[in-house]
Amino acid sequence: MNFFRLTADLMHLLSIFVLLLKIQKTRSCSGISFKTQLLYAVVFVTRYLDLLKWISLYNTLMKIFFIASSIYILYLMKIKFRATYDPSQDTFRIEFLLGACLLLALVFNYTFTFIEVLWTFSIYLEAVAILPQLFMLSRTGEAETITTHYLFALGAYRGLYLLNWIWRFYTEHHIDWIVWVAGAIQTALYSDFFYIYYKKVLHGQKFELP
């Protein structure tokens, strides 16, 4: 564990708490893409098939939290606050993402086993899971400030993982190409968002696309 990784994980936790706060406070999931949340649930379930393999208490607790919270968010969006979700805004075709990620995982993996291919699939899927949310944002052209804080924390989490990998490469000679490439793509997808967040939200303005 190093500073970047711990901060990244805490940002990831924070992003989920901010999302839960947004839904509970406004009693609405408007502006949130159900498809992105569904993809995150798929990511966590397929990645943490090794849940029973002991690495550390920290590792196990975080895995349980990520799986449980992602499913709870689906429950909030699909059942509790169903009326506030507008599917006509959430039109990104996730079938293509799922198909492409599965195909890539079958071809580019470390070991061709069931668990390993699903782990690789989850890494690729996480990289693009935010696309329905960003697509929704670009369609509506604006977002509630708390929603942008959620997205910022989520993007920062991945950005910090990049620093963690650089750190681990130099201190432990840790190499993980699959995770690196997917993580770099995932962070790059946030670049436009980061720019507008910095320009507008951090200066007290509403998030609006130019």
């Binding site: 990784r5 990831h12 550390s56 590792n59 975080m62 470390y110 782990w119 840790h174 190499i175 699959i178």
Partner: peptide, 10 residues
């Protein structure tokens, strides 16, 4: 090249 990818990261 050492392909060390123990799944210790989340």
């Amino acid at each position: 090249e050492q392909l060390k990818h123990e799944k210790d990261e989340l």
